[in-house]
Amino acid sequence: MNLFRLFGDLSHLASILILLHKIQTTRSCRGISFKTQALYVTVFVARYLDLFYDWVSLYNFSMKVFFISSSIYILYLMKVRFRPTHDPSIDTFRAEYLVGPCVVLALIFNYKFTFPEVLWSFSIFLESVAILPQLFMLQRTGEAETITTHYLAALGAYRALYIPNWIYRYFSEGVVDPIAVIAGLVQTALYVDFFYVYFTKVLQGQKFELPA
């Protein structure tokens, strides 16, 4: 564990708490892509199945339980509790175009051709693109509530912090995890546009609005 990874994980944790806070206080899931959230559940369930047979640490265990349960809870909030506030007509990104290629990639690129390892690779590839329906929705509506942008910023910061973590681990432990690193770089790159608007507008006190 190093500080980059710790702060990355805490940022991930914060992003979910911000999202829950947004939904609970506004009593609405407006502006949130159900597809992205459903993809995250898929990612967490596929990756954290090792919860049942591989003990890493209490930290690791608690985080996994939190990520799986909170992401399922968010789906419940969107589909049941605040269902009327979710508008599927603007959440139109075809998620199956993401899942299919990730299955194929996982079958080709994995560390061992076993079920858990292929599932792990799949979750890494899927996580790297899971934010696309959300970003697509943002692009389509051209604006976002400030709280939603804080959620995305925390999520992007988590990904960004994993990069110095890998550099640190390369020098301190001599390990490289090429699948995680390549997918992670792709994932972080997807946030570049968002961060540009976030830094130049939201953090200057303006509303998140994309140029027409």
Binding site: N60, Y162, D177, I179
Partner: peptide, 10 residues
Amino acid sequence: EHGHEHHDEL
């Protein structure tokens, strides 16, 4: 081989 017997990152 990527150096870990298990995946220790989240």
